[in-house]
Each structure stands twice: as structure tokens, then as C-alpha cells.
Nucleic acid binder design. Structure first.
Lengths: 207, 207
DNA sequence: ACGGATCCATACCTGGATCCTG
DNA sequence: CAGGATCCAGGTATGGATCCGT
């Protein structure tokens, strides 16, 4: 937390310079760079799989784009759908719940200016409140239930008040195998769980 | 085959130049380069997994180092041991057999001179003869049997007349999980199947 | 001489997210 | 404006084999 507070008010360009890195190029070529940069700045174990960013602390790190009033401007990716496992996994043991059990949110200015000039906001360490967890569980159960019924191909991002399912892949032609309504194999685009910005905006206000 | 014959007598440097590539550096930094180069020269689908190099033809491509008399100077890697599957897989359905069912051998001069100066020999399209297949099957059954008994940790490259098992990994610290004699989990170095050079020397003489 | 150790290229997967068009 | 599409980095796995000490 001390390290995270120390970033408050600094631009991403300053952080990059301090770490000996650069963040140049088109904005669409920089999608994950702010996240990578803050991971390095805080000493997270980058790129490791199936573990929190700070394994010893059980903390997940997320940068989150906010406007001048503190509203979140984009949804937040949580994790990939594991189509093979989701039918057997209850909320209590789900990857989504583990990922969201303890998150360090680091707001980053989302104004339309060069990444190097955007400033880092006040970091918040968050655990879901009882109300938040109920809301997440309800969405999860509904989404997982529909997948269990083989309705994955018809599931859109419209379902879910705080948690939704959206495509997650290199492009629209990506395919993975899932089970259809009659138990048959169907090819669908890989998906991921995302948090709606209304949910993350609210939790940042509370925290 | 026409393309493969066309390479006869040319140096790897000539082939690299024709393809717009280079093969510089220390010899130990060039271990797989001859193979990569000949793949490109013959239009093989490089790097694809679980498929032959020429999927439509069912042909596997292997460059093989030979001395001036045509003797093979190194063993030939066949495939990785899949410790999880090998207990259930019979020779007839094994990855080893599929890999070796039809191979285009492209001899490459193994003399101790720069890779660019080494010459390509006469390519042979090979299928195992009945005798060769019996010999391979016997070795495979013995090796797979010992693995099935949980003896993987004690298996050395001494076992097998034509097919052997040797380490295959980035370095000696690599580890994978296997089953020991009492069904317990043991950590061992990843292994691969290899053909002894006596076997490949003989098959090149016949072909 | 050869068994154990090692080296490179490339594809693939996961984790980091934001882009952008109807 | 948000659902569907996409972009980059980095680690891991696989495929190409030969190196090299005992």
C-alpha cells in the first residue's frame, strides 16, 4: 500500500522513465501497457498463471480507467471462461470469486491524451462487501446456469447486472469447443467474465 | 521429392541465401537451424503441433547429420514422452509409430565446419520395413512397460536397441510429474524418444 | 562414444486491458 | 454507449536438433 500510494499523482511517463521503459505508439497498441507498468512498479509477479499478482498476500492488482469525476470508463476483465469446468464449479469455488476476493484497484486517468501524460489516482484495497458478493453470486449463478444448459452460443453481454460475459480472444475468428443444448459439441468464440463499469464505479466511491 | 532432390549437393549457406535467411553464430547456437531451413525450403508447415510436417501427405521431415561415409553421427529425436498417456497407449496407436510411419530423411554433412558450408545429401522417403517395425515395437513395448511399472525415474538411455529414452528439456533442472512404483507422484526430468544412430545409419544404407 | 544436458525458433496460451462501429 | 472485436507482452510448450563431459 505504501508503494501504491507513492504512485499517486505521478504520470505513467514518469513511472516508465523511472523503470527504464517506454510507452510509445498508437493508443490501440498500448491497451495493456498501463497494467504491465504498474505491475512492475509495485513488484507484482508479472505473467504468472493461476495465481494472484501478489501470491504471498493473495492480492490481485488491477489498473482501472477513470474520468475526472472518478467514473470508470471501461469494463474490467476478470478471467477467462473455462467451459470445461464451469458446469461443475459453484460460486464458492469459482475462479471469478477467487480473483475478486481481494483486489488492489489503481485508478488511471482515462482522458484522451497520450498515455505518458496520464496520471495515477489513489489506490484502494477492496474486498467485496456482503451486498456486492450477493450481487456477483446472483449474476454468476445465472450465467453459469445458462452455460450448463448449453446456451453458451446465445449468451450475450446483456445478461448480468454487475458481471457479464463478453468475447475474449485475438479476433472474431477465434474458436473454442463447448457443449450445446443437446450435449453436442459446438464451436464458439472464447469468452471472459467482465465487471460492468457501473459496478466498479460504485465500489470505488465506497472504498 | 523433386524439391528434395533439387537440394542435393547445395550448401546450407546457399539455401539460406535463396530463402533470404542467415545462419551465423556459435555452433551450439545453431542446433536446430538446419532442420528449420530445410523445412522452409520444402514448404513444410513449420512448428505445427500434433501433425506431420506435410499434413496432406502424412510425411514427417527430418534432417540427419552424416559423415563422409554416410554414417549417422547423432541420435534422432522422435517425440516427447507423454507420461500421462503412455500407460494406456499401445504401439499400434502410439505417437512414436505415427511419427515414424513415413519419414523424409534429408542427410546433412556433419563435418566440423561452418554450417553455411555443409552440403545436403540425397533425400530418402522411408517407411519402416517389417523387420524395422518389429524392432521398434519391441523397444517401445519394453520402454512403455517399464514406465507403466513406475520405473521412469530409473530408466536410462541404455535401454532399447534402436529406440531409447533420453532427457528432453531446456536444462537439467526441468521437471515434470510422473507416477512412481507405488503409484505416488514423482518429479522427473521430461524425456523424449530417440532413434539410435546405428538404426538410422542402417536404414539410410537400405533406402 | 554416448548418455545426459542443453540451445534456438515459433506457436500457443494467459494475463494485461481498451478499441470502435452500428 | 456498450457489446462485440481486438491488440501487446511474456511465459510455456513443442518441434527443430546437437553439444560435451566422463
Amino acid at each position: 500500500m505504501v508503494r501504491a500510494q507513492a504512485l499517486l499523482g505521478h504520470t505513467l511517463g514518469e513511472v516508465a522513465a523511472a523503470l527504464g521503459g517506454r510507452i510509445d505508439g498508437e493508443s490501440r497498441s498500448l491497451k495493456g501497457r498501463a497494467g504491465d507498468l504498474v505491475e512492475r512498479a509495485l513488484g507484482a509477479s508479472a505473467g504468472s498463471a493461476a495465481e494472484p499478482d501478489f501470491p504471498a498476500l493473495g492480492i490481485e492488482l488491477k489498473t482501472i480507467p477513470v474520468d475526472e469525476r472518478g467514473s470508470v470508463s471501461e469494463s474490467t476483465f476478470v478471467c477467462t471462461l473455462q467451459l470445461a469446468r464451469i458446469a461443475d464449479e459453484r460460486w464458492a469455488d469459482s475462479w471469478v470469486r477467487r480473483k475478486l476476493s481481494c483486489v488492489l484497484w489503481v485508478p488511471v486517468d482515462a482522458a484522451p491524451r497520450p498515455l505518458t501524460e496520464r496520471r495515477i489516482g489513489r489506490a484502494r484495497l477492496w474486498r467485496p462487501s456482503p451486498d456486492e458478493e450477493v450481487a456477483l453470486k446472483q449474476d454468476y449463478d445465472e450465467l453459469a446456469g445458462r452455460i450448463g444448459l448449453g446456451e453458451i452460443a446465445d449468451l450475450t453481454a446483456h445478461t448480468g447486472r454487475c458481471l457479464q460475459i463478453r468475447p475474449k480472444g485475438p479476433d472474431g475468428s477465434a474458436r473454442t469447443t463447448a457443449l450445446g443444448p443437446a450435449g453436442e459439441l459446438v464451436e464458439v468464440m472464447p469468452r471472459g467474465f467482465y465487471l460492468r463499469s457501473s459496478f466498479t464505479s460504485a465500489l470505488l466511491q465506497h472504498a
